[in-house]
Design a protein around this nucleic acid. Sequence first.
RNA 1: GCCCUUGUAGUUCAAUGGAUAGAACAGAGCUCUUCUAAGGCUUCGAUGUAGGUUCGAUUCCUACCAAGGGCACCA
Length: 582
Amino acid sequence: MQEKIENLIREVLKKLDIEVKDIFLEHPADLKMGDFSTNVAMTVAKKNKTNPKELAEKIVASLKPGFGNLQKPGFLEKIEAKNGFINFYLLQDFFVDSIKEILENKNFGQNNLFVNKKIMVEYTDPNPFKPFHIGHLMTNAIGESISRIVEFSGAKAIRANYQGDIGPHVAKAIYGLLKFGMPDEDKSIPQKARYIGELYAKGNDAYEADKNAKKEIDEINQKLYDRSDEKINGIYDWGRRVTLEAFEEIYKILGTSFNYYFFESLVAPIGEKIVQENKNVFEKSDGAVIFHAEKYDPKLHTRVFINSKGLPTYETKELGLSKMKFEKENPDISIVVTANEQGEYMKVVQKALELINPEYASKMKHIVHGMMRLASGKMSSRKGNVITGESLLLESCGQILEKIKDRDFTDEEKKQVSEEVGVAALKYSILKQNIGGDIIYDAEKSISFEGDSGPYLQYSYARANSVLEKAKKENMLPGFVFLKPGFGDLQKPGFFEPISEVEKLLYRFPEIVFKSAQEFEPHYIANYLIELARAFNTYYGNTKIIDKDDSASPYKVALTLAFSIVIKNGLYLLGIKAPERM
RNA sequence: GCCCUUGUAGUUCAAUGGAUAGAACAGAGCUCUUCUAAGGCUUCGAUGUAGGUUCGAUUCCUACCAAGGGCACCA
């Protein structure tokens, strides 16, 4: 359709003897201003120093029948010039056809942007021995959504989770466990994991406040690398298993499953080897091995790759990880999703990788998202003022459970619905905004169940579904026949169903998905779905969809079905489930 | 000090250089004998400051102000 309109404009401009390179077509911000519009008159007027409004009117006049030998094109209802823009209104047929297309294709919205491409997405990255905090929830929501969006765009997505199972943070947690003792045997896995997270915070406090503790923790860290202490090995293996199992329970609720789990303990030696083999890139300084990135780019800075104790830092591990990813899967694009606090250091690592292996570096893409912040300041698991992702999830789901307690659901259904809706509330609040921006977490407001929210979208879907259930019972099948009347019937008032905003938005879904994929930005989909759901709810509010006496009723059912398909696909792309009832 | 993000209604977020800057929450007021009121309909209310580029700037450039992050052995 876009092409048709573009060609039409080209044809007219040619007739008017106007040269133009690109024709920029967009959807006007307001549906009242047509389905497509172009600012071509303004750009041309600028070049030729003529009046844009007059030119727009001239173009429109030339597009209309009875002027010259151009016929009014069959696919347009109306063309108008307004404020220098040229607006195109599509014919009803186009919208009805688009509804048919949606009903024929349950995967409506897919595109070919990444066809035959393999894209690895690394996200979530919680560390064993530390709590699963809100930041992990955020990275998970974004990474999962991006994975689904690239899949919907033809890519083979490979989900990877990179976890720091070695390093000072582990030593701190183990120091805490040695000092304060192990948790009771009969506690649940999440309880044990929570306990380990608390002791990590204590270990960290001790590390900063107490010199002896610092020394002890450094020793534990060294022993962990060497695996030289039987007792520490035992605690380590146990704690690693417990925290990883606790994470799995959270992934299950969130609806994520990974193809790969990478661990720092495994990539560290690979990274160390890379650093040793590239002496031309790295330098020795104060007993450490460092990389002077500012030599290559003044905006970058120096970072330590091997510390003065001979232990590899995160930078080195990251090099090892990259190598491992490419050797295992050789992705066309290797995406890493993290919070922006890692943005600067990641650029340094990327620069180092560029010197070591330019091919790998060119395929890496680091997506940074904002931080989840408290009004009172930054959350840090080191300080212990974190709201864990787990507790937030439980709270969100709990609030839903309270809300549906009187509904006609079995206990099993209640649990499932409250989980699906609770997760939706959280994920939507993360995904509705630009990836880059911080999210200010407010316990009162951040989890929203009404208005601009995940549950609102789910509710709209459940409503549509309920209409469709009723339609099935009453044998009201989706249909279009009534819209193909004899020519004379066109005049019959009330025969045609006016095209609503729902149709005008539905056909745009694939464009939105495409844009989201191109920019790796899920929020376009989130915003689109809200607009669509709002249009449907308005339609629903003043339309009786199932009505045996209404010849348009089959079409209304078809429209409802099309809406339910699109909203379900859209929610899927956000990583949100669409319950049939809620 | 240098570098990276970000400044839009009271609050949380939108707006490929375009039209009257959109929503939601909060506030005021309607609305369930119709398919789910987690809904619908009214209403009040905003581009950090100062310049610049442009027919046109929330968007691009410069400076300033403010918030967050990073800047050598944490991740």
